[in-house]
Computed example of a mutant assay.
Amino acid sequence: MSAGGEGRRGVVLTDRQRLSWLRLIRSDNVGPATFRDLINHFGSADAAIEQLPELSRRGGSARAIRVASIEEAERELETAERFGAVFVGIGEPDYPPALRRIDGAPPLISAVGDLALATQVAVGIVGARNASVSGAKMAARMARDLGAAGYVVVSGLARGIDAAAHRASLEHGTIAALAGGLDQPYPPENLDLYDEIRAGKGLAISEMPMGWEPRARDFPRRNRLIAGVGLGLVVVEAAQRSGSLISARRAADFGRLVFAVPGSPLDPRAAGANGLLKDGAIVTTSSQDVIEALAPSSRLFSDDEPVMEEPGDDETDRFAEPGDDDRARVIEALGPSPSEVDDIIRHTGVAAATVYLVLIELDLAGRLHRHPGGMVSLAFDDP
Rank of each mutant, 00 (worst) to 15 (best):
T34E: 00
N40K: 08
E189M: 12
L277N: 05
L357N: 05
V126T: 14
A352E: 15
D183M: 07
I205K: 00
R57T: 04
E71Y: 00
V236G: 03
K278L: 14
L146N: 09
R299L: 14
D145I: 06
H172W: 13
H166N: 05
Y95G: 07
L203Q: 09
R36G: 06
A333V: 01
V376H: 09
L231G: 15
Q240T: 14
D267K: 10
S44Y: 07
R66D: 14
S27R: 08
A47T: 11
D218P: 04
Q120V: 12
R299S: 15
T79I: 11
A216W: 12
H41M: 09
G31I: 10
K137A: 15
V330D: 00
I197K: 06
S206G: 04
A128Q: 01
E361T: 04
G263R: 13
A165M: 04
R36N: 00
V290W: 09
L294I: 12
A85R: 12
G255H: 08
L334A: 10
F219T: 13
G127R: 08
W21G: 01
P32N: 04
V235N: 08
V11I: 15
A333I: 00
S134V: 13
D363I: 00
H166C: 09
F83L: 15
L24N: 02
F87S: 03
P209N: 14
I125P: 06
A179T: 10
A227G: 10
L19H: 11
R75S: 14
L277Y: 08
E321I: 12
L359E: 01
V350N: 04
R318L: 11
G124P: 07
D192S: 15
G349P: 07
L77N: 05
L191R: 14
P262H: 13
D195T: 13
T316C: 13
S27Y: 01
V341M: 03
A328C: 08
